[in-house]
Design a binder for these strands. Structure first.
Length: 442
RNA sequence: CGGGGUAUAGCUCAGCCUGGUAGAGCGGUAGUUUUGGGUACUACAGGUCGUAGGUUCGAAUCCUGCUACCCCGACCA
């Protein structure tokens, strides 16, 4: 992409409303724009990151056997009356009426709807297990939205819902999602630690939050140091093998990890001092097993092998992609700007032409640009007639993993410079060598 | 939902106390300058001062209502 033809509204100064670093950097780097309290428009750069995150989530959900659907944002109140949550949900639910005065709502979650879908079409245990997920916008009318997309009213959520004939099957479904989540966050370069959680309004008796450690995190968390080094399950792990999945779960829950609500100070203090990690955390995923909480009142049943009608065993599994964008920045930035992990970076390479209009420099840049793109590397080419300093500052701010700097001085010797945004490491080399190096890394 | 605050140019803010018809820096445009970490200079453009009403000869400024947004707390993916 040529920057001159792109839409990247960089802010040099920080808008006053932004309190935390991810919110500040997202506004400055032209990724989002606030439209109302807790409601944001996604600009091109931010959307690219969001889509990268979604792609990783999809791959891992599919790998774990979940099937993608897409449910609407608007739901009917009657559906929620079936579970009793229409009354129970309170003012966080955005309630609206259509032109016929029918009561509708902007969905804060989809347990009722997905249960209705499965109830209508699944009649036999032979159709199970089933796990349906979608990635869709949700709305929760928070009293006080804040921290940008970290705590917004409208937010994107991947929510999966598992359906099984019995508790053992549901447990396996839970463990599969548990494993998929470990992989998902690891692929984004995040160390997410599963912590036992309160089930809250979703209900149920088994629940884990996936928390990433970041100094600006909203909640206090405590865990064993081993979590920081623990390797995540491989891509080819046997998702269909119950013992294997239970093994992953057991391994990842055998050591101490808890949020402040579930914290057991005595158990934590029993750990050797050197193993205790007490930090701030950001919740990026939350999984629940809640049995028949929705299937029973909503009459979602199937015939079992014994011919008896049985209420479905359910679980739900959420990840917040829009929040993850902010969480990733909280975990990956410096005083100059964002530092995107390669797997979610909006572009892999930023190409800076230091003297637009200079024939040799323009030609060298165009050549690099074309050859990198041809090699499948996403390049943002800064071809604007701007000062070198401004270009460096912009590239550092938007945080692309690699920078290629091309100017007349270097070109006189047939050389360009590449810089690693994360390490700051620079290297002067020929354009050919730069291309080799970048295609190998990206 | 309690408490506090803010609203003036695209962004960050000054002006308000003490009423006289709007400013700076950054950004934008045009030029000069030249160019390797947000260069310097010149000129230009850009605001019914959130909104509705009131007081006054006169309101960004004083008063009242409303709205929006922000912060602290309670609450939450």
């Amino acid at each position: 992409m040529r920057l001159s033809r792109y839409f990247l509204p960089i802010l040099r100064e920080t808008p006053k409303e932004a309190e935390i670093v991810s919110h500040r950097l997202m506004l400055r780097a032209g990724t989002i724009r606030q439209e109302a309290a807790g409601i944001y428009a996604w600009l091109p750069l931010g959307l690219r990151v969001l889509n990268k995150i979604n792609a990783i989530i999809r791959e891992e959900q599919n790998r774990a056997g979940a099937v993608e659907i897409l449910m609407p944002t608007i739901q009917s109140a009657d559906l929620w009356r079936e579970s009793g949550r229409y009354e129970a949900y309170g003012k966080e639910m955005l309630r609206i009426k259509d032109r016929h005065e029918r009561e509708m709502l902007f969905g804060p979650t989809n347990e009722e709807m997905v249960t209705a879908i499965v109830r209508a079409h699944v009649k036999s245990y032979k159709d199970l297990p089933l796990n349906l997920y979608h990635i869709q916008w949700k709305f929760r009318d928070e009293v006080r939205p804040r921290f940008g997309v970290m705590r917004s009213r409208e937010f994107l959520m991947k929510d999966a819902y598992s359906f099984d004939i019995d508790a053992e099957g549901a447990r396996h479904a839970y463990n599969k999602m548990f494993t998929a989540y470990l992989r998902t966050f690891a692929r984004m370069g995040l160390k997410a630690i599963p912590m036992r959680a309160d089930t809250g309004p979703i209900g149920g008796n088994l629940s884990h939050e996936f928390i990433i450690l970041a100094s600006t995190g909203e909640s206090e968390v405590f865990c064993h140091r081993d979590f920081l080094e623990q390797p995540t399950p491989a891509a080819d792990i046997a998702f269909d093998d119950r013992a294997t999945m239970q093994g992953v779960f057991d391994h990842w829950t055998s050591k101490y990890a808890a949020t402040s609500e579930m914290h057991d100070a005595a158990a934590f203090d029993a750990l050797p001092e050197a193993d205790r990690v007490s930090a701030r955390g950001i919740e990026v995923g939350h999984i629940f097993y809640f049995g028949t909480k929705y299937s029973e009142p909503m009459g979602a049943t199937v015939n079992g092998p014994d011919g008896k009608e049985t209420a479905l065993q359910m679980g739900s599994y959420g990840i917040g992609p829009s929040r993850l964008v902010a969480a990733l920045i909280e975990a990956n930035h410096d005083d100059k700007g964002v530092i995107w992990p390669t797997s979610v970076a909006p572009f892999q390479v930023g190409l800076a032409n230091l003297k637009v209009g200079d024939a040799a420099t323009d030609a060298a840049c165009l050549d690099l640009y074309a050859r990198l793109e041809k090699a499948g590397v996403d390049v943002l080419y800064d071809d604007r007639d701007d000062r070198p300093g401004a270009k460096f500052a912009t590239l550092d701010l938007i945080g692309l993993p690699h920078q290629v700097i091309v100017g007349p001085k270097g070109l006189a010797d047939g050389l360009v410079e590449i810089k690693n945004r994360r390490t700051g490491e620079r290297e002067t080399l020929t354009p050919d060598a730069a291309i080799n190096k970048l295609t190998a890394q990206a």
